[in-house]
Amino acid sequence: MLTSKEKEQIIRSSGADVTKCMRCGKCSGACPSYDEMEYHPHQFVYFVEKDQIEKLLNSPSIYKCLGCSVCSERCPRDVGPSKIVEAVLAMAVRRQDENHLKAENIPGMVEDDTPGQLLVSAFRKYKK
């Protein structure tokens, strides 16, 4: 089976070895954002292995990951699901006009007490 360029890019960009996954699901048992997500950490790993990247790229799940790394920390095989999620997210926002967060929308999202850290972090994650 030929490997798609997308899969190759995800593997390269994440530095994760999806073949090490033994499908235990501990990542998804640990994920604090599980209920917010359509696809869950273990599915990110599995879909990348099965080369179904498009599904992930188009899923709102990529914006629901908290980047907390708990899935990778507890992974018994050092696969690192969070690294995969981040690589897919990066691929999505690197598409032309695909910035998930746009500067013009920010004023409506900010309150007086919003810390700069929140804006900067969100921009880093959601915008190229």
Binding site: S13, S14, K83, E86, A87, A90, Q117, L118, S121, R124
Partner: peptide, 9 residues
Amino acid sequence: GGVYNNTKD
């Protein structure tokens, strides 16, 4: 930058 970008590239 607030968060570390984990991608290798």
